[in-house]
Nucleic acid binder design. Structure first.
Lengths: 122, 122
DNA sequence: TGCTATAGTACCCAAATAGATACTTGAAGC
DNA sequence: GCTTCAAGTATCTATTTGGGTACTATAGCA
C-alpha cells in the first residue's frame, strides 16, 4: 500500500470501512451489543458462518479494539466476547443501519440484493 | 447460498452489510452526498482506485439503487452519478461513521489499522 | 492525417477471502 | 479405555476480488 490520504477528512471513513467490512463483523457487533456472549453462542446465532471464519472475524475485531476476549482457564475451555468502551460507541451506527435496512426492504428494494437469500416471516 | 434468516430481525443488517461493503463504496457515497459528480471527478478523489474498480463499484451501487447514473449522449462521453432518494437516506449513517472514525483516531486506536497508510496533516 | 478527450471493455494474472475436513487439549462420565 | 465437551488450529482447495495493460468509440482541433 503506502498510500496517503489526500484529505485528512476522508481518513475516518477509510478507517471505519476497514474495521467493519468483513462478512460477519456487523452482525457480531450487533449481537454483542445486547450481551457478552460465549463463542458457541455467537456460532449458534450465525449458523452459516464456519468456525474458522468466526474465529478470524473475532480476532480481527479484537485486534481493532472493538471487542474484548476473555479466556477462563477451565476445561473444557470457556471464552467470552463483549464490546469494549470504544466498541460500544458503534452501537448507534448499527441501530441506524438496521433502521435503514428495514426501510429499504419495506420499500421493496431488497429483491435485487437477496436473490437467493430468502427471508422467513416470523 | 440459499440461506434463510432465522430471525427476520437481523436481515436488515445483512442487507446493509451487503450493499455497503466493497473497497470504495462508502467513500463514493460520501463524496456523492455533497454533489452529483462526473466519473472523472470521482476518480480524481480516489486516486488509488483503478478505473476498473471504480466502474465496478459504481455499477453495484447503481444496481442496489443507492445511486443513479445519467448518460449524456455527447462526444466525448459525459456521465454523472448522484444519490437516489433511498441513497440519500444513508447520509446520516455516513456522518456517524465519520464521527466515530474521528473519535477512534483521536483516542489513538488508529495505529493498528493504518500501518502503512499514512495520514497527512493538511 | 493524426492527436486529444471521456468513459468505458476485455483479458489475463495475482492476491485475498472463504469453505471443507481433519486434528488438538485435558478433565469428566460411562 | 473410549467418548464428549468447547474453542480452537492446520491444511488444502475454491471462489471472489483486485490490478495491469491494451483496446474501443467519435467529434473537434491542428
Amino acid at each position: 500500500m503506502n498510500e496517503k490520504c489526500l484529505k485528512y477528512d476522508i481518513c475516518p471513513m477509510i478507517l471505519v470501512q476497514k474495521i467493519i467490512s468483513g462478512k460477519w463483523k456487523i452482525l457480531i457487533l450487533w449481537y454483542l451489543s445486547y450481551n457478552t456472549l460465549r463463542f458457541n453462542e455467537i456460532k449458534k446465532r450465525l449458523p452459516y458462518a464456519t468456525q474458522k471464519m468466526l474465529t478470524q472475524q473475532l480476532r480481527s475485531l479484537e485486534k481493532d479494539k472493538l471487542i474484548f476476549r476473555r479466556v477462563y482457564p477451565v476445561v473444557p475451555p470457556k471464552v467470552d466476547y463483549g464490546l469494549t468502551e470504544i466498541g460500544k460507541r458503534i452501537i448507534p451506527i448499527l441501530e441506524m443501519m438496521h433502521g435503514f435496512g428495514a426501510e429499504y426492504l419495506e420499500q421493496g428494494y431488497g429483491a435485487s440484493v437477496f436473490q437467493d437469500f430468502v427471508t422467513d416471516e416470523e
